[in-house]
């Protein structure tokens, strides 16, 4: 589904991401972990085009997207959530979900008029479904800024899903959640995978990622130090060293 070949991002002399090679198979939950500052978020920003690649290439479903502008990438099938929740706070829940409909219009409609002026007919049903899936049906008219923290996270996820992506990037979706909410998130991410969407999950919460990821890659100082199944990664000596320091 997604292939990163020799991907590098340098900020001056700092190699935030350094010759990273990753291959994510369709239908997987792929975990990306690593200590703070190891390049996880930079990788996500490279994949979504918010940062320019220094070297290397990004291929999505067989198509190279390395130089595509950000706004085109969503219509080519990438959706994301943000580490610190990012919503249109002054728009309602409904309007926030409507944003994702825009990507569909850009993708499916070729006619200038319907692209820019088109109304809401098909969107209404899809947005209602997304509201129900995320348990926000009774909050449709609230301003996004007025939602509780957990609801905001659910809305962000619903919005990413409403774009019907092939690949979903989740940047620390469990940050700030209590154990109960994490349990629900766990189920929801599995449901997303089972509906056919490939998931790239960045997470600090080890229990969650070890429980649901099909495959995990570990970054440190921008380089991949290990990759494998959760069990393999946990046993890997380089991973133990990166997380716990040199074994005594």
């Amino acid at each position: 589904m997604l292939e990163l070949a020799n991907l590098s991002k340098h900020f001056g002399g700092v190699r935030a991401v350094d010759s990273l090679n990753l291959k994510i198979e369709p239908g997987q939950i792929f975990g990306l972990i690593g200590p703070n500052g190891s390049g996880k978020s930079t990788t996500v920003n490279l994949i979504t085009g918010l940062l320019d690649v220094t070297h290397g290439s990004i291929t999505l479903a067989g198509e190279e997207i390395t130089r595509l502008p950000t706004h085109v990438r969503l219509s080519s099938g990438i959706a994301r959530t943000f580490q610190n929740i990012r919503l249109f706070g002054q728009l309602t829940v409904w309007q926030n979900l409507w944003v994702a409909e825009n990507a569909r219009a850009q993708r499916e409609r070729t006619n200038f008029f319907s692209r820019w002026m088109g109304g809401d007919r098909g969107a209404r049903a899809r947005i209602t479904r997304a509201l129900e899936f995320s348990g926000l049906a009774d909050k449709a008219d609230e301003l996004a800024a007025n939602l509780a923290f957990g609801e905001q996270r659910r809305l962000e996820l619903a919005r990413a899903l409403a774009a019907e992506p092939k690949l979903l990037l989740l940047d620390e979706p469990a940050a700030g959640m209590n154990p109960e909410e994490i349990g629900a998130l766990d189920d929801r991410i599995r449901q997303i995978r089972d509906s056919g969407i490939t998931v790239l999950l960045i997470e600090h919460h080890m229990e969650l990622i070890m429980a649901i990821a099909d495959r995990i890659a570990v970054l440190n100082f921008g380089q991949k130090i290990a990759e494998g199944t959760p069990a393999e990664v946990q046993a890997h000596p380089a991973v133990r060293e990166a997380y716990l320091g040199t074994a005594g």
Binding site: T70, H71, R86, V99, A163
Partner: peptide
């Protein structure tokens, strides 16, 4: 949407 958060709008497929 652009007025509120241009980066977020960009990520949502808006030129």
């Amino acid at each position: 949407q652009i007025g509120e958060d241009p980066l977020l709008a960009e990520v949502h497929g808006i030129n």
